[in-house]
Design a protein around this nucleic acid. Structure first.
Lengths: 173, 173, 173, 173
DNA sequence: AATGAATGAGGGTTCATTCAT
DNA sequence: AATGAATGAACCCTCATTCAT
């Protein structure tokens, strides 16, 4: 990626996150990136291509977040890390993740089981800890984490650390 | 609301739900409603006014859903009803709720503590049942339900009834 | 056709004729027609639709020109009228016919045997006059008329009436 | 002309012939020629310069076609060769000539009496053969040949050799 | 000579909105 | 209340052209 390509992606990321994909015009992206509008199309083909590039980045970042969890050996550690995940995201990254959640609703056919590796890891962890329904426990937890992440980004959680501690305690990890 | 007004709202509801607010043009709404485009503006002022009307309906429907929960006296019943709520939504209504979730992300400054009555009711229920941190339990559960509702709408939950039974069992209600 | 629709078609006709279809922008058409650019698309769908409307007019005008020839009973009259046809076109209509010739080359798959009724009429006329190869005579004449029309429009014929008299004399009609 | 220059001209020739000058972008030409877009401008200045180069080639080719006719001594031979000319063009060259006809209509102020040498030769031939109006005969024949060539390129002539024989017979050459 | 990133103007088209009827 | 013609701004995108390398 050249320097200008990076700038375009960065600007698009911010604008798509703030206003949504459809509500953001390519001309606004170009202006924000300090670049001619045509360049967007030279590098990404069309607006959707730019979006695709951004989504790819998002998927990579998600995989990075998971990696640490999935690779843990101790079942309690797996669960603890999963619980901590939403709280580890720095506020400077909220915009980025906000976009990912936005896109999940704005795009048709998005989010096809990206969570699966996490699902598997959590199921195994719950099984090792002799939970009666490890698969369902994992499923529930993932949904809960999704809801928490969502609320975090929308500013619906005032006391983050208290909630986190409560969760770690609740799951005894 | 006159008959044509209803038709407009209904058409907008469907289209906004399917394609998103920004991606839906007023002309498409008019066509789907079998109405002239100008009429939309006569009745709702502008496109945002039409959206506002739809949001209002959504809020009313949400209150209706809550009412049954909030008014319950038995704490276990409160929790049970809360847990059942996402699963009670009929598939024919998915489109409607899909739109509500969509809007939460598409609009700036949306979702201002609509959940509060539910939060209060759940906190009280958990307190009556002697949970150590009733407020946090309520908060967690609400986020979890949000996540479950989200997954339900996106088709990410294959076996609804099993998950529901698991939850009722988990919370012993 | 409303008044503005007429204006659009008229302006497009002139511009397409002068500069060619591809070289004429819809904005130029709109400006020349004294109309907003959007109106073109409301009425004709897209630029090609506008072209189609113009082509339709051209085909009608061509049929009108033929009608007089085809309906003649006397074979000599048929041939005479065919020969006179290119010379009957008024100079104020040159622009219109210029466009028709232009389009024949600019558009793929244009001009599919529009000349057939004329071909039939001329063949019959030559047959009645005992020409040895009436069909080939007709074919040749049509091509010649096409070439003459083309030259007429491009300004390649200085003395129209002399050429016309020569032709009438040559075919003895 | 360097090898790359040739490639550009060749690619432009094909594309201009197939889709027209205005409808062909320089980027498409570059791609088809396997050359960077910038090189076109290095060599030909601008798009019009590329066109000019192509036109020049066309004019040379036309002169070549004429040469054989004009240099003939026997008047019958002149006429015969003129009549044969359109039929001598190989189908593999149709694309090239198609472009020439296209350009005649697409460009303003094109075709300034390129036919003159042929006109002179034919006039002389008809005069030698004691035609009453040799100049008009020549003019008519040239227009007819133009029409025939046009039809040939547009695929409007099914039986070429029959038409040719008919013409040779008609002019008794 | 040759590339390919970069540009700015303009392309066709869609949009939300207004207005006369 | 209801229509549909009409608008002008903005949309995404393509264009011919330039320039540093």
């Amino acid at each position: 990626m050249t320097e200008k390509q990076e700038k375009i992606v960065q600007a698009a990321l911010e604008l798509f996150a703030q206003e949504g994909y459809h509500a953001t015009s390519t001309s606004k992206v170009a202006r924000a990136a300090g670049v001619s509008e045509g360049l967007i199309f030279r590098h990404f083909g069309n607006k959707e291509g730019l979006l695709a590039a951004i989504i790819k980045i998002g998927e990579q970042r998600l995989r990075d977040l998971y990696a640490d969890i999935v690779l843990a050996t101790n079942p309690k550690e797996v669960i603890r890390k999963a619980l901590e995940m939403p709280f580890l995201v720095e506020e400077s990254d909220y915009e980025f993740w906000n976009l990912q959640f936005k896109l999940k609703w704005e795009l048709p056919g998005y989010d096809p089981s990206k969570m699966e590796p996490l699902q598997v890891a959590l199921t195994n962890a719950f099984r090792k800890l002799d939970y009666t329904f490890p698969k369902l426990e994992a499923e529930f937890l993932i949904h809960a984490l999704d809801g928490i992440g969502s609320a975090l980004l929308k500013g619906g959680i005032s006391d983050k650390s208290t909630l986190k501690e409560f969760l770690l305690d609740k799951y005894q990890v």
